[in-house]
Design a protein around this nucleic acid. Structure first.
Length: 274
DNA sequence: CGTGAGCGG
């Protein structure tokens, strides 16, 4: 905060800011010899509890009643321009190039098989993906027609079976898949998922839990709602542990009257586009 | 009327 130069007259706004709470600036008297006018300045609060600056009437107006007399007084309003930090148009000028470029691409290419899908949903993700990583040193991946970029290691470098330096996830460690036939597929098991539609908007997940619990243990319940408003979209997914429980739930609940609506229950199909 | 949502490039 720069100090205010006392030699110059300061603006009314600055005077107001200088006032501390409840303290009025002192009154002052100033005599102009040339004009023979004595100016008495005083500060006080008006009926709206706002601070005002007044001069005692003088000259031809000395006997005038309170208030400005148009015959001898000019009312002047000091305009104060507010400066705002934010500029609407500046914000709107912002353009996000990377996002725009990404959206215009629309075409996705799998890093594993160069297919038309994301890498994470590649059908060979569980087989070729890890294989590629293991062969990364020196040897080409077995995808013959794939013009993969050559690795910087070079073909002359031998590929020692190093067990250090690189993290190997538990699913890829030796001996993981030998014991059980149960491979923990990274994807959710949708085979026991049912879709419930025609739900009333005020149905909650706890209501669905009560409704479907008699048919068997439930793994997950998802009630579709609008992400922003939280408003229910009127359908839900129920994930049972066992598919036969889901089948009985379909037979038992489909057509069930619930909250003045008739529920519709079917097998769910995996989400996403093809 | 209605098949979720995210990750990522």
């Amino acid at each position: 905060m720069p100090s205010i130069d006392d030699s110059k007259p300061i603006s009314w706004a600055e005077q107001v800011e200088q006032v501390e709470d409840g303290v009025l600036p002192p009154s002052s008297e100033q005599y102009d010899e040339e004009k023979g006018i004595k100016v008495v300045t005083e500060f006080k609060y008006n009926e709206e509890n706002k601070m005002v600056k007044t001069w005692r009437k003088f000259g031809a107006a000395e006997r005038d009643p309170p208030g400005p007399n148009p015959a001898n007084t000019i009312v002047q309003v000091e305009e104060i321009n507010m400066q705002f930090i934010h500029n609407k148009e500046e914000v709107q000028e912002q353009e996000d190039d990377p996002l725009l470029k990404l959206k215009s691409q629309k075409l996705v290419s799998c890093r594993i098989c160069k297919g038309d899908h994301w890498t994470t949903k590649c059908p060979y993700k569980d087989t070729l993906g890890p294989l590629q990583e293991k062969l990364q040193d020196g040897e080409k991946p077995p995808v013959g027609d794939a013009p993969g970029p050559p690795t910087s290691q070079g073909p002359t470098a031998p590929a020692p079976t190093k067990t250090s330096g690189k993290y190997v996830p538990p699913s890829l460690r030796d001996g993981v898949n030998k014991g059980r036939g149960e491979t923990m597929s990274s994807k959710r098991d949708e085979s026991a998922t049912i879709r419930v539609t025609n739900l009333s908007e005020d149905t909650r997940e706890s209501d669905l839990q009560e409704l479907f619990r008699p048919f068997g243990p439930i793994q997950r319940i998802y009630l579709a709602k609008d992400k922003n408003t939280g408003q229910s979209k009127g359908f839900a997914f129920i994930n049972f542990h066992r598919r036969e429980d889901a089948a009985r739930a379909i037979a038992g609940v489909s057509g069930f009257g619930y909250d003045h609506l008739i529920l519709n229950v079917e097998w769910a199909k995996p989400s996403g586009t093809s």
